[in-house]
């Protein structure tokens, strides 16, 4: 893809892009990975603590504690997003705060807040899933594909 795109460029465009790239500030990928690992891990640790709390205080089992834990994490995310803190954490953490369920929550909540000025139906209603929608579409789609593969393998593969 990258090479194909480059071939379409004129020689002067290629020269300029190479010239520009040399002076571009690079993303600190290694540092970002470490930060994402630490913050992502921290969010998961908090999730585990909440989960353990539900199991020991409210008679949930390890299996059923998942739902209230996710709900609690999303509630905390809602507060952090509403008070304008989550995007600051995210600028530091990157994928660390985008990948866990809190990132999904933030995508929905921030859109809902932003489009409030356009009304509840065509504003909040139709834009709320603008960022999170693709996650749902391709999440369901890939689950479907994986389920078909699994069915084929278990039915006819003899596992």
């Amino acid at each position: 893809m990258g090479d194909k795109k480059k071939q379409k460029l004129q020689p002067n465009q290629q020269r300029y892009q190479a010239f520009q790239q040399k002076r571009e500030i690079k993303r600190p990928i290694f540092k970002n990975c470490i930060k994402a690992f630490l913050i992502g891990g921290l969010i998961c640790l908090i999730g585990q603590l909440i989960s353990t709390f539900y199991i020991y205080q409210f008679n949930f089992t390890e299996k059923t504690a998942g739902n209230p834990t996710v709900a609690t994490l999303i509630f905390i995310t809602m507060l952090l997003t509403g008070f304008g803190i989550y995007d600051r954490i995210a600028q530091f953490a990157g994928a660390g705060s985008a990948v866990p369920v809190t990132g999904f929550g933030n995508a929905v909540i921030s859109s809902a807040i932003e489009y409030r000025s356009e009304g509840f139906i065509l504003g909040v209603g139709s834009n709320m899933l603008k960022l999170a929608g693709p996650v749902i579409v391709y999440g369901v789609f890939s689950a479907f594909i994986v389920a078909i593969i699994k069915t084929i393998l278990t039915q006819w593969g003899g596992f």
Binding site: I25, Q91, G94, A98, N106, A107, L131
Partner: peptide, 13 residues
Amino acid sequence: RYPTEYGGQKPPT
């Protein structure tokens, strides 16, 4: 770009 409160990491450029 994104909603104001959306947590997306921006590159240094």
